[in-house]
Design a protein around this nucleic acid. Structure first.
Length: 646
RNA sequence: GCCGAUGUAGCUCAGGGGUAGAGCAGCUGACUUGUAAUCAGCAGGUCGUCGGUUCGACUCCGACCAUCGGCUCCA
């Protein structure tokens, strides 16, 4: 029999019969070096020949290669068990509900899902039953077997089983041979790799039930998706579930209530009411951005909230989005509440004749916008129907475009640095199927965005076809506590509106030209930004943004007068300060100030009143007393808006 | 919009076909307080809304509304 050379992790090489399985090869070698324990923890094998691939432990080795075990707790190992758990779940579902058709079941971050079509559907009470059956199948420790068959044969078998979605998938595969995985009575189309037997799946939990569309298209049949999570051990599973629980403590919807920042009411779904404290955060953010506008050369404008719909017919928004707008008919004329500022700014630009010397024109606008977002998509402050952006539109000459993009990236960087946001994910979203404007403009615009990102040195994910209908865009995305991704900053080059609105400027040569138009926002929507900021800081807003910056706590009524004087002194210095004069013990007031995350707490008793000092409590701990003036000066220093006037 | 779940006092939650419960918050009083909850009393509800079943519904059924987790969408 032919032999091959197999090299192991320790560098040793052995001549072994071709066709030996990866597991057997490692087992023979381990017998000599004592690595059996590691082998028992392996769920797959890494084989390196031409490239490096993770394969089944039962995969036969046919050529010279290096082979190493893949431990269950490694990223590759977790991927294997998660995929195997998806199969396990599908098998359990088929046992309990044989009328169900299986579709696809991929691995996702921290877990997996599987999409099913079941007449009558699943209810969440089904999940515990499915889990129970899964545990039974683990106890059966069914061997998992890979089989390669001709595509036609695979189609025939799945058709016989009544698995029509699988048939459709296989028919779309270009290869002549496909691989199937068997475990007991269950068989699924799959590339693998998988654990060698169902008993090797250590810990899992089914987490939720959701709707999903076949092939991700809303025009297709609605399937049901069951989500689960799987880990290398019960302890890891518990730790993961605990992390999820802890993340909920930082959820902006909880913090928004505890901190009395905003609320939502069914009378205006998706439209937050900002309470007095939330309004301070909102307005301070606007003030911060305004201070940067002075430096970055923007001029602020105020434009109408309601327009005749002709405006969006010109811009193209009406065709694409009129179902998603708040529309009304007044005196037989249709009007709409603006969902974005751009068309209004185009009218503004056209109110006078522009010279190349005026450009770039940068119109900033903090107007409220109203979008009729679908009911099922609303979420706290991150997806709303009523919002305001730190929006601006830039009109420039083509040769100014690169400079404007660079200026935008610089401003974005400055703002994110001020908030300590470092987990940004940058995407470039290109021309969608339905688009307006000339193709050559689109190509030039996409090239300009690519250049800007390259110069900025961002690692970029390209999302083909995800751009706006009027132009390609860059998105700066951040994760919320549930790891969902949301766009904050964006910059978009408009390939349609300048021409549709007939915008012109006079060039140096005295001819007329169409300006380049940019849409951009740095914070994005203020609502969404506040949500991400709250979650990022766990509610401990920086002092300059905190609704209450200083709270003065008298130890007893005897210090009430002095506490009032201290609070007045803080307010005179421009701080948002208040004295807590309620008839409560100090410990009670301290606790409340902590819970409300007031950044600067000053305790005053008879000693402080006599000495003209305060005893600060910062970062959750009592500090030695300092003179009142020094406390005020230090707090004022911390209250400076970042990057603002010195 | 679609699938699944949830909705009881301002908040967090218990309860269950036969007159609605707790803790915190609120109000009143006592205590005069030294760094994460002092004590007592009082008040607070169309049990999301509308309809149905029933002698009787907060509880069972249906529709709707809102919220939550996904899917689709996201100018």
């Amino acid at each position: 029999m032919a032999e091959i050379t197999v090299t192991f992790e320790d560098g040793a090489a052995e001549r072994l019969p071709a066709g030996i399985t990866a597991a057997e090869a490692m087992r023979r070698h381990a017998g000599r070096d004592g690595g059996r324990a590691r082998l028992e923890r392996a769920v797959a094998a890494r084989v390196e020949a031409d490239g490096s691939t993770v394969v089944d432990l039962t995969r036969p080795l046919l050529r010279d290669c290096r082979v190493a075990p893949v431990a269950v707790e490694t990223p590759e190992g977790l991927e294997v068990i998660r995929h195997s758990t998806a199969h396990l779940m599908a098998q359990a579902v088929k046992r309990l509900f044989p009328e169900t058709q299986i579709t696809i079941g991929p691995v996702i971050e921290n877990g997996f899902y599987y999409d099913f079509k079941r007449p009558g559907g699943f209810a969440s009470e089904d999940l515990p039953r499915i889990e129970e059956t899964m545990r039974a199948i683990v106890a059966e420790d069914l061997p998992v077997r890979r089989e390669e068959v001709a595509r036609g044969e695979a189609v025939r078998r799945f058709r016989e089983m009544g698995e029509h979605y699988k048939v459709e998938i296989i028919e779309g595969i270009p290869d002549d041979v496909v691989s199937l995985y068997h475990q007991g009575e269950f068989v699924d189309l799959c590339r693998g790799p998988h654990v060698p037997s169902t008993g090797r799946i250590p810990a899992f939990r089914l987490t939720s039930l959701a709707g999903a569309y076949w092939r991700g298209d809303a025009r297709n049949e609605q399937l049901q998706r069951i989500y689960g999570t799987a880990w290398a051990s019960e302890q890891d599973l518990e730790a993961y579930l605990k992390r999820l629980e802890e993340a909920k403590q930082r959820d902006h919807r909880r913090l928004g209530q505890v901190l009395d920042l905003y609320s939502l009411h069914p009378i205006a779904p998706g439209s937050p009411f900002f309470h007095a404290k939330g309004a301070v955060v909102y307005n301070t953010l606007v003030q911060y951005i305004r201070s940067l506008y002075a430096r970055y050369g923007y001029t602020e404008v105020i434009t109408p909230l309601i327009y005749k719909t002709e405006l969006w017919k010109t811009s193209g928004h009406y065709d694409a989005f009129h179902d998603d707008m708040f529309l009304m008919t007044i005196e037989d004329e249709e009007y709409g509440v603006k969902p974005m500022n751009c068309p209004g700014h185009c009218y503004l630009f056209a109110t006078r004749k522009h010279s190349y010397r005026d450009l770039p024109v940068r119109y900033a606008d903090f107007s409220r916008l109203h979008r009729f977002e679908p009911s099922g998509t609303l979420a706290g402050l991150v997806r709303v129907r009523s919002m305001a952006q730190d929006d601006a539109h830039i009109y420039c000459a083509p040769e100014q475009l690169d400079g404007e993009l660079e200026r935008f990236v610089a401003m974005t960087r400055e703002v994110y640095a001020a908030f300590g946001f470092d987990r940004v994910e940058v995407t470039l979203q290109t021309r969608p199927e339905k688009f307006l404007g000339r193709l050559e403009l689109w190509e030039a615009a996409e090239a300009a965005l690519r250049r800007a990102l390259e110069r900025a040195g961002y690692a970029v994910t390209v999302l083909e076809g995800q751009g706006a209908f009027y132009g390609p865009k860059i998105g700066f995305d951040f994760r919320d506590v549930l790891e969902r991704s949301w766009t904050l900053a964006t910059v978009q080059i408009d390939c349609a509106m300048p021409e549709r609105f007939g915008l012109r400027y006079v060039t140096a040569e005295g001819t007329e030209a169409t300006p380049v138009m940019l849409h951009r926002a740095v914070l994005g929507s203020l609502e969404r930004f506040i949500a991400i900021l709250l979650e990022h800081t766990a509610g401990r807003l920086p002092l300059w943004l905190a609704p209450v910056q200083v709270r003065v706590l008298p130890v007893s009524e005897k210090a009430a007068a002095y506490a009032t004087r201290v609070a007045d002194a803080c307010r005179a210095a421009g701080l948002r300060a208040e004295a807590d004069l309620r008839n409560e013990k100090l410990g009670y007031k301290v606790r409340e100030a902590q819970v409300e995350k007031v950044p600067a707490v000053a305790v005053v008793g008879e000693r402080e009143a006599a000495a003209g000092t305060v005893a600060p409590r910062t970062e959750g701990a009592a500090q030695p007393a300092v003179p009142l003036d020094a406390f005020v000066a230090a707090t004022v220093a911390e209250a400076c808006v970042p990057g603002g006037e010195p």
